[in-house]
């Protein structure tokens, strides 16, 4: 087997993916840079190191790990990482959110974009979908994992907790959920909107295995996702509370909800790009 990709290599990819995100959102003057930049290191680690997957996209995903994106607004991140994994042509990133594109504002299956299995965008639904897919893996005797990424504001949706209760009750232990714990949502910090309180204790009370990680540290992501994988198969679903910084990598976007869903202007783009090394070649 080939050596796994190294941490420095992953960090170089993440820098390029961040460039892709700000360029895509700038080009169409629409989209969500904040959450996308914050989750970049995680998504890169997943698709370049953790997931057992094939860019020869098979919608059923038989014999592969599955990834679902519940916080669909971080679509530019997902699209960049899929393209950089050769799921589709890099040039297609130019079409993000423009008419007739496969790269819809929120991930969709209708246009047949490789990598997307269920549409998302309306929040709160992805955990249920992931639990369902994990059940099918079990029914099919397929011992691969199901991963899902959600937002922290998204945890305010009741459906999340319906799914959490179901997954624990049914011992869905081939499921690893990650929460982008950036403490921000549209209207402000999560704690000022509807606080999640002790999220760890809540998931524990729902009978989940809980791990905590640093989502903007490649080492920490790899070691905790490896840990999460080792906790699977023991009768409990696993959740990874992953601390990130919204807007990570572009100083003026960092740590504020203001950049949840607005595009940079020309000058801001220029400033952002000077902070992000072009490592793999822009699309």
């Amino acid at each position: 087997m080939a050596d796994p990709i190294t941490i420095p290599q992953l960090n170089r990819i993440a820098s390029q993916v961040r460039r892709d995100i700000v360029r895509m959102v700038h080009s169409v003057q629409s989209g969500h840079p904040g959450g996308s930049l914050g989750c970049t290191d995680f998504m890169v680690a997943m698709y370049f190191r953790i997931l057992k997957h094939s860019p020869n996209f098979n919608p059923d995903g038989t014999g592969e790990d599955l990834f679902f994106l519940s916080n669909g607004h971080v679509s530019p991140l997902w699209y960049s990482v899929l393209a950089r994994n050769k799921y589709f042509d890099l040039e297609e990133l130019k079409t993000f959110r423009k008419i007739n594109t496969r790269l819809q504002g929120h991930p969709a299956t209708q246009e047949g974009l490789p990598g997307v299995r269920v549409a998302s965008g309306s929040l709160g639904q992805g955990l249920s979908v992931a639990v369902g897919a994990a059940l099918t893996k079990k029914l099919n005797g397929d011992n691969h994992m199901v991963y899902v990424l959600m937002g922290d504001g998204e945890q305010q949706e009741g459906q999340i907790w319906e799914a959490a209760m179901f997954a624990a009750h049914n011992k869905v232990d081939n499921l690893i959920a990650t929460i982008d714990y950036n403490g921000q949502q549209i209207d402000g910090p999560v704690d000022s909107i509807i606080t999640l309180g002790n999220l760890k204790a809540k998931y524990e009370a729902f009978n989940w295995e809980v791990i905590e990680s640093e989502g903007n540290d490649m080492n920490d992501i790899i070691s905790n996702m490896t840990l999460a994988r080792s906790l699977a198969g023991r009768g409990k679903p696993v959740v990874n509370l992953m601390k990130t910084e919204m807007g990570k990598g572009v100083d003026f976007m960092e740590g504020t909800h203001e950049w949840h869903g607005i595009p940079p202007n020309d000058k801001q783009l220029e400033s952002a790009l000077t902070q992000l090394e072009e490592t793999l070649g822009d699309y």
Partner: peptide, 8 residues
């Protein structure tokens, strides 16, 4: 509503 697409 435009660019957000069909989900919205």
């Amino acid at each position: 509503l435009g660019e957000d697409g069909a989900t919205h």
